[in-house]
């Protein structure tokens, strides 16, 4: 039942202890990505700018969730909870944007006007 199969030589009795180096590496990566996203924002890539900015933000958020929030070493049920959040957010954003984004595509038949 329990998900504490991985052996660790840490003094902590419960849960995984993340090595200090991992925290520092994640922090450094987050800082570099912050610099990259600001630099890229000044390059005119048209519609791509917003997708690059959100892609970098998504990657940064994933690093925070996996390592700072310990989901990488959490139980499978906790992982499922975290993914559920993204799933419902995707429904909220995706389906609403599909609706509003496509409203000007069609010419409704005269009957509906």
């Amino acid at each position: 039942m329990a998900e504490h199969g991985h052996a660790h030589a840490h003094p902590a009795a419960h849960g995984h202890v993340t090595p200090l180096g991992v925290y520092l590496a994640i922090f450094a990566t987050l800082m570099v990505l912050t610099g990259v996203t600001v630099a890229v924002a000044y390059v005119n890539l048209g519609q791509l700018n917003i997708f690059i900015a959100l892609g970098i933000a998504g990657f940064k958020a994933t690093l925070v969730v996996l390592y700072f929030m310990h989901v990488a070493h959490a139980s499978r049920l906790t992982k499922l909870f975290a993914v559920t959040g993204i799933f419902f957010l995707a429904i909220l954003l995706g389906l609403t944007m599909i609706d509003y984004g496509s409203r000007m595509w069609v010419n409704p038949p005269a009957l509906l006007q």
Binding site: T37, A41, Y42, L45, N49, A53, I56, A57, A61, V64
Partner: peptide, 13 residues
């Protein structure tokens, strides 16, 4: 992390 690019960044270029 999401507010920063959306409010401050995406229209700079």
């Amino acid at each position: 992390i999401f507010l920063f690019p959306l409010l401050y960044l995406i229209d700079r270029a």
